[in-house]
């Protein structure tokens, strides 16, 4: 029992560290196919990371230690969250009662330092991006929490390994509609948190409407590499949340579970690619409306769960 559990832990850590950049490649490939192009290699994000890690950094003289702290903290928190949530098995290297709250706030901490690093450059442009990031994060975070609340109510636990564990599969038969609503609202959160179209465009670098990219304009070399890696980790974390929420990766067969989980995250990445190809960016004022809408949908799911107790 112990040996199999530690084996799961090893696989968990390996997957969490090595797998995420692949998702960026999958999204880009799907977008390329939709655009009629062949697209970059699936492993492009790994090459980029390798390249960035061997570059020098140019650091503005007006910046302080916060500027370098930003990428480090956002990467560290990303890794920590990836170690808290269960992946292909209902266990996690870091698990304790209440880690649900820690996971969400770790994401918040990473965001805080990314914004701090952006503000530290003293650029008005990056300050604007930080303000937007803060605004939208304020609206996205409750949606995530309400979804977790639904799951906590259904599974009767406040630990990620239970909330997103094998109990979810059983909960689906009782509260299908509520979980479906949470699934939809979490997908919206995934798009917002990872600055994807229709909320933000990860490919623009010179538009006044962008949010996340503007905050990292001054970072270069290894720091930018850390940000890229952190971003892929965040995408992976949210994709993992969605896949665990479906409860499909709980067949009982460990190998099948891991297979389903990894396929599931790739499917989520494909979905993101499809959304990015099929939708235009929202106008900036409609983004809060869409987020509030997602929040109301998740909240309605919560009401449904509360009613049917």
């Amino acid at each position: 029992m112990f040996s199999s559990l530690s084996l799961h832990t090893i696989i968990h850590v390996a997957v969490a560290l090595l797998f995420p950049p692949l998702l960026l490649g999958v999204i880009n490939r799907v977008k390329a196919v939709f655009g009629g192009r062949r697209g970059q290699p699936l492993l492009q994000a790994y090459y980029d990371l390798w390249k960035l890690m061997h570059k020098d950094s140019v650091i503005s003289q007006t910046t302080t230690w916060v500027f370098l702290f930003g990428p480090v903290v956002s990467l560290a928190t990303g890794i920590l969250v990836a170690l808290i949530i269960p992946l292909g098995h209902a266990s996690a290297p870091l698990a304790f009662a209440g880690d649900v709250i820690l996971a969400v706030y770790l994401l918040g901490l990473g965001r805080f330092f990314t914004m701090g690093a952006a503000l530290d450059t003293g650029s008005a442009f990056e300050g604007m991006g930080s303000a937007r990031e803060a605004t939208f994060a304020c609206l996205a975070e409750p949606v995530l929490f309400i979804g977790l609340l639904v799951l906590a109510k259904l599974t009767g636990s406040f630990s990620m390994i239970d909330v997103l564990g094998d109990g979810v599969a059983e909960a689906w038969s009782g509260a299908t509609v509520a979980l479906l609503l949470v699934l939809v609202s979490w997908f919206v959160v995934l798009l917002v948190e990872n600055s994807r179209i229709p909320f933000d465009d990860p490919n623009t670098h010179l538009e006044l409407t962008m949010i996340h990219e503007v905050m990292v304009l001054d970072h270069s070399g290894p720091a930018l590499g850390m940000i890229l890696y952190g971003a892929s980790l965040k995408l992976f974390v949210f994709a993992a949340l969605l896949v665990r929420l479906t409860g499909l990766a709980a067949t009982g067969n460990p190998l099948a579970d891991w297979g389903i989980f990894l396929t599931g995250t790739i499917v989520v990445a494909c979905l993101v690619g499809v959304v990015e190809s099929a939708m235009a960016r929202f106008r900036l004022p409609t983004i809060p409306a869409a987020l509030v809408g997602a929040g109301v949908v998740a909240f309605f799911g919560f009401l449904l769960v509360m009613i049917e107790l």
Partner: peptide
């Protein structure tokens, strides 16, 4: 957005 929020709270 406020009317959506009121609708949600009302619900």
């Amino acid at each position: 957005v406020p009317s959506l929020l009121i609708g949600g709270v009302g619900a």
